[in-house]
Structure formats: structure tokens, C-alpha cells
């Protein structure tokens, strides 16, 4: 069959047909391009070109108004040398622990205990509640926690109610607790997300696997490490990507709750980039922070992506 087709197509291709087919293909190609052109224009004008410009800006000293002067890599040297900038990158490292590692660890532990929760009645209610913080505007989340952490807020009221008056403090105004308090909001936000993700992952495991393990007398721990954890590799990768990237991008929460304070104790790169570009007239420095942050996010996304099991593609 294939032989005859090949022969026939070889025989019947007249010399003049090839260019016309190529032309038809070009026209089709052009038509198809029109489908994507508007989207491409949006992407180039509002995302891609400005991103390249950020890299260009980062090589200048500019206050946003007067003429920019060439600074070479000085802005990048400052990121390492300037204590305020260096600290902001350290702080975001702490936030990664609270936004990502803690929620994932807690959710995995819980998944171990309640691995078959998806089969229970009422699970859709719990899923809805656990996921709820994800759909609320970050600004609303921020004002909520601002109120919880306030001197007479929910947290201090609770501490007083159980006789721990000595622990009460101005959580977001204290050098020792401000960063951890901001981080804890991330933990609160992401535990539910990770739990929903992992429980749905366990739900995809065939129940026969668990039954077989039980018949073989596997303990809960063996079951977790033998079946549940391997089955969750994809979900853990997703959870890592989501939570690490969101912690690196932390801006809204810091802007609303602390503006980087007290002192410099909660400043993060995204806040420094905003503040320097739009408040303190250090556009070049802001751009260099943005470049380092962007490269960091892209690198980490790529690295975590390599953990993804190949068969899910």
C-alpha cells in the first residue's frame, strides 16, 4: 500500500505543482499567524520587551526623571555589598521555609494520617474550606492578619485568655517576630493548598494497591513510603513550584503589613524593587534587583521541574 502511494505520488508530481503547494502552505501559514498575532503583540509589548528593558535599565544609574548615567555592573555589586539589599534576599530565604517547606511537610504528614480521606463523606466541603484562602485577594488577607497581629488583636487576646500574657507583643512591630509573623501567613495560606493537592493525588492511587499492602501486613509507615509518597511525586513537584515561586514573589503582604519594617527586618526583593523604582528614585538599582529575582525564579522553576516524573507529560 505504502509502496504504491509513494510510487504514484512520485509519478504524478508535475514540475509546476511543487511551488503552488508551497505557496498554498505559505498562505495557510500566514492565515494561521493572524490567529496568534494579536496575542503575540500583547506579549511582546507588555511583557517581553519591558523585561529586556529591565536588564538594560539595571546597567544605569537613573532617578526616573533626569538623564541616566552608565553604571555598568555597579548595581549588581551593590546587591552583594549593600546590607539592605543583601538582607532582603536573606529574608526571602526565610519566607521560602514558611511558605513552602513547612506547608509541604505538614501536608505530607497529614496525608500519611488521613490518606484515604477522599473517600469520606463531606470531603468536598473540607476541600472547599481548605482551599478558600487561595481565592481571597492578597490585600484582604494582609489586612486580616494586620488585625490579628495588632496589639489587641485575635492573637494577643487568645494568648491572654490562656494565661500567656508574657508572650503578647506587637507581632509585626518587633524586630524579632516581624519576619516570622509574615512567614506564618504564608504557612496558613499554603497548608490547605498542599493538603488538597496531596489528597487528590492519593485519590488517584488504585485502592487495590493499599488493600494488597494491608494483606501483606504492611505498616502504616511502610504503606506511606512504599505507595503514597512515590505516587505523590508529581503533586509534590507542583506544590514546590507553586509555593516557592509565590514566596519569592511576596510583595502585597509586605507592602500592606510592614512596608519592610521595623527597620529593614521584613524587606524582600520584590518590595525593594518597587520601593526603589517608584519611591526613592533608584530605578537602576531596582531593575538589578528585579533581574536577579527573575533569574532566581526561572532557575528554581526549571530545577524543580526536573524533579517532575517524566511519565506525566
Amino acid at each position: 500500500m505504502t509502496v504504491t502511494t509513494r510510487l504514484r505520488s512520485g509519478e504524478t508530481r508535475p514540475a509546476g505543482a511543487a511551488p503552488s503547494r508551497a505557496r498554498r502552505r505559505r498562505v495557510a501559514s500566514l492565515k494561521a499567524f493572524l490567529y496568534v498575532a494579536p496575542a503575540l503583540a500583547f506579549s511582546l509589548i507588555f511583557l517581553i520587551v519591558p523585561t529586556l528593558q529591565t536588564a538594560w535599565y539595571s546597567l544605569y544609574d537613573w532617578n526616573g526623571l533626569s538623564v541616566a548615567t552608565w553604571a555598568g555592573v555597579q548595581n549588581y555589586i551593590d546587591i552583594v555589598q549593600d546590607e539592605q539589599l543583601r538582607d532582603s534576599f536573606m529574608h526571602v530565604g526565610v519566607l521560602v521555609v514558611f511558605y513552602s517547606f513547612l506547608p509541604i511537610a505538614i501536608a505530607l504528614l497529614l496525608t500519611m494520617v488521613i490518606s484515604r480521606a477522599h473517600a469520606l463523606r463531606g470531603m468536598s466541603f473540607f476541600r472547599t474550606v481548605l482551599f478558600l484562602p487561595q481565592v481571597i485577594a492578597s490585600v484582604v488577607i494582609a489586612t486580616t492578619w494586620l488585625s490579628i497581629y495588632s496589639p489587641n488583636g485575635l492573637l494577643n487576646t487568645l494568648l491572654r485568655a490562656i494565661g500567656l500574657d508574657s508572650l503578647t507583643r506587637v507581632w509585626l512591630g518587633d524586630f524579632n517576630t516581624a519576619l516570622v509573623s509574615v512567614g506564618f501567613v504564608g504557612t496558613w495560606l499554603n497548608v490547605g493548598l498542599c493538603l488538597v493537592l496531596f489528597l487528590s493525588g492519593v485519590g488517584n492511587v488504585q485502592p487495590e494497591l493499599f488493600e494488597a499492602a494491608r494483606l501483606d501486613g504492611a505498616s502504616g509507615l511502610q504503606e506511606f513510603f512504599g505507595i503514597t509518597l512515590p505516587a505523590l511525586r508529581g503533586q509534590i513537584t507542583v506544590a514546590l513550584t507553586l509555593t516557592v515561586v509565590s514566596s519569592l514573589k511576596t510583595f502585597d503582604l509586605v507592602y500592606i503589613t510592614t512596608r519592610g519594617g521595623p527597620g529593614n527586618s521584613t524587606s524582600v526583593p520584590a518590595f525593594e524593587a518597587y520601593n526603589r523604582a517608584f519611591n526613592s528614585g533608584q530605578v537602576g538599582s531596582a531593575a538589578s534587583v528585579a533581574v536577579v529575582l527573575t533569574i532566581g525564579i526561572l532557575l528554581i522553576t526549571a530545577l524543580i521541574g526536573r524533579l517532575q516524573p517524566k511519565d506525566t507529560e
Partner: peptide
């Protein structure tokens, strides 16, 4: 790309 990458320019 995070918004920080392009918002300044």
C-alpha cells in the same frame, strides 16, 4: 515571568 520582571520599564 514575575510581574517584577517587566513592571518598572
Amino acid at each position: 515571568l514575575p510581574a517584577e520582571a517587566f513592571i518598572i520599564p
